[in-house]
Protein backbone atom coordinates (compact mmCIF):
# COMPACT_ATOMS: atom_id res chain seq x y z
CA UNK A 1 0.00 0.00 0.00
CA UNK A 2 1.37 3.34 -1.02
CA UNK A 3 0.25 6.80 -0.14
CA UNK A 4 -1.64 8.38 -3.01
CA UNK A 5 -3.24 11.70 -3.70
CA UNK A 6 -6.54 10.42 -2.34
CA UNK A 7 -5.08 9.95 1.13
CA UNK A 8 -3.80 13.50 1.24
CA UNK A 9 -7.09 14.89 -0.04
CA UNK A 10 -9.06 12.85 2.50
CA UNK A 11 -6.81 14.08 5.30
CA UNK A 12 -7.24 17.65 4.05
CA UNK A 13 -11.02 17.27 4.00
CA UNK A 14 -10.98 15.95 7.57
CA UNK A 15 -8.83 18.90 8.66
CA UNK A 16 -11.05 21.37 6.83
CA UNK A 17 -14.11 19.85 8.48
CA UNK A 18 -12.45 20.19 11.87
CA UNK A 19 -11.79 23.85 11.19
CA UNK A 20 -15.33 24.41 9.95
CA UNK A 21 -16.83 22.75 13.02
CA UNK A 22 -14.61 24.86 15.26
CA UNK A 23 -15.65 28.02 13.46
CA UNK A 24 -19.33 27.13 13.71
CA UNK A 25 -19.36 25.87 17.29
CA UNK A 26 -16.96 28.02 19.26
CA UNK A 27 -18.01 31.44 20.54
CA UNK A 28 -14.49 32.57 21.35
CA UNK A 29 -13.33 34.97 18.65
CA UNK A 30 -9.70 33.87 19.04
CA UNK A 31 -10.60 30.22 18.56
CA UNK A 32 -12.73 31.19 15.55
CA UNK A 33 -9.66 32.83 14.01
CA UNK A 34 -7.61 29.71 14.76
CA UNK A 35 -10.28 27.62 13.03
CA UNK A 36 -9.93 29.82 9.96
CA UNK A 37 -6.21 29.10 10.03
CA UNK A 38 -6.97 25.36 10.19
CA UNK A 39 -9.18 25.63 7.11
CA UNK A 40 -6.58 27.63 5.18
CA UNK A 41 -3.93 25.06 6.08
CA UNK A 42 -6.16 22.23 4.84
CA UNK A 43 -6.57 24.00 1.50
CA UNK A 44 -2.80 24.47 1.33
CA UNK A 45 -2.36 20.74 1.83
CA UNK A 46 -4.66 19.97 -1.11
CA UNK A 47 -2.75 22.42 -3.30
CA UNK A 48 0.67 20.98 -2.48
CA UNK A 49 -0.52 17.38 -2.79
CA UNK A 50 -2.17 18.01 -6.15
CA UNK A 51 1.00 19.71 -7.33
CA UNK A 52 3.02 16.68 -6.25
CA UNK A 53 0.89 14.37 -8.38
CA UNK A 54 0.85 16.65 -11.40
CA UNK A 55 4.38 17.96 -11.63
CA UNK A 56 4.34 18.52 -15.37
CA UNK A 57 2.44 20.96 -17.49
CA UNK A 58 0.62 18.33 -19.51
CA UNK A 59 -1.94 15.76 -18.34
CA UNK A 60 -0.61 12.31 -17.65
CA UNK A 61 -2.18 10.68 -20.69
CA UNK A 62 -1.27 13.32 -23.24
CA UNK A 63 1.40 12.85 -25.81
CA UNK A 64 4.85 13.74 -24.59
CA UNK A 65 6.14 17.14 -25.58
CA UNK A 66 9.61 18.51 -25.71
CA UNK A 67 10.90 20.36 -22.64
CA UNK A 68 11.22 23.55 -24.67
CA UNK A 69 7.58 23.44 -25.70
CA UNK A 70 6.54 22.77 -22.13
CA UNK A 71 8.63 25.67 -20.87
CA UNK A 72 7.09 27.91 -23.50
CA UNK A 73 3.65 26.77 -22.38
CA UNK A 74 4.61 27.60 -18.79
CA UNK A 75 5.48 31.09 -19.91
CA UNK A 76 9.05 31.28 -18.76
CA UNK A 77 12.36 30.20 -20.09
CA UNK A 78 13.34 27.26 -17.95
CA UNK A 79 15.18 24.15 -18.84
CA UNK A 80 12.72 21.92 -17.07
CA UNK A 81 9.08 21.23 -17.68
CA UNK A 82 8.15 21.15 -14.03
CA UNK A 83 5.25 23.23 -12.78
CA UNK A 84 5.01 24.47 -9.24
CA UNK A 85 1.65 26.17 -9.46
CA UNK A 86 0.30 24.49 -6.35
CA UNK A 87 3.29 25.26 -4.18
CA UNK A 88 3.49 28.87 -5.32
CA UNK A 89 -0.24 29.30 -4.80
CA UNK A 90 0.21 27.90 -1.30
CA UNK A 91 2.78 30.67 -0.68
CA UNK A 92 0.20 33.27 -1.55
CA UNK A 93 -2.37 31.56 0.65
CA UNK A 94 0.13 31.74 3.51
CA UNK A 95 0.69 35.44 2.82
CA UNK A 96 -3.05 36.09 2.81
CA UNK A 97 -3.44 34.03 6.00
CA UNK A 98 -0.77 36.11 7.74
CA UNK A 99 -2.50 39.33 6.70
CA UNK A 100 -5.85 37.93 7.79
CA UNK A 101 -4.48 36.93 11.19
CA UNK A 102 -3.00 40.41 11.76
CA UNK A 103 -6.18 42.24 10.82
CA UNK A 104 -8.41 39.73 12.61
CA UNK A 105 -6.48 39.97 15.85
CA UNK A 106 -6.56 43.76 15.62
CA UNK A 107 -10.33 43.56 15.23
CA UNK A 108 -10.50 41.24 18.26
CA UNK A 109 -8.51 43.77 20.31
CA UNK A 110 -10.70 46.67 19.21
CA UNK A 111 -13.80 44.62 19.93
CA UNK A 112 -12.51 43.77 23.39
CA UNK A 113 -11.83 47.43 24.06
CA UNK A 114 -15.41 48.22 23.10
CA UNK A 115 -17.34 45.41 24.79
CA UNK A 116 -14.91 43.96 27.37
CA UNK A 117 -15.47 40.47 25.99
CA UNK A 118 -14.43 38.51 22.92
CA UNK A 119 -17.53 36.35 22.66
CA UNK A 120 -18.66 36.44 19.07
CA UNK A 121 -22.33 36.65 19.99
CA UNK A 122 -21.61 39.92 21.82
CA UNK A 123 -21.04 41.53 18.42
CA UNK A 124 -24.68 42.46 17.92
CA UNK A 125 -24.51 46.24 17.61
CA UNK A 126 -25.81 46.15 14.05
CA UNK A 127 -28.64 43.77 14.97
CA UNK A 128 -32.01 45.24 14.11
Amino acid sequence: MTVTLGHYLALASVLFTTGAVGFLVRRNALVALMSIELMLNAVNLTLVAANRWQPSMVPAGAEPATPEALAAAAGYASQSAIAHHGQVFAFFVIAVAAAEAAVGLAIVLAFYRLRKTIRTDAADTLKG
Binding site: T4, L5, G6, S13, V14
Partner: peptide
Amino acid sequence: GALSAMVVLSYRPERV
Protein backbone atom coordinates in the same frame (compact mmCIF):
# COMPACT_ATOMS: atom_id res chain seq x y z
CA GLY B 1 -16.44 16.33 5.31
CA ALA B 2 -17.16 12.60 5.49
CA LEU B 3 -18.73 12.68 2.03
CA SER B 4 -15.78 14.49 0.48
CA ALA B 5 -13.32 12.19 2.26
CA MET B 6 -15.15 9.13 0.87
CA VAL B 7 -15.14 10.58 -2.63
CA VAL B 8 -11.49 11.50 -2.68
CA LEU B 9 -10.37 8.25 -1.03
CA SER B 10 -11.71 6.42 -4.07
CA TYR B 11 -9.56 8.56 -6.34
CA ARG B 12 -6.40 6.67 -7.12
CA PRO B 13 -4.24 8.37 -9.69
CA GLU B 14 -1.35 6.60 -11.23
CA ARG B 15 1.93 7.18 -9.53
CA VAL B 16 3.76 10.06 -11.07
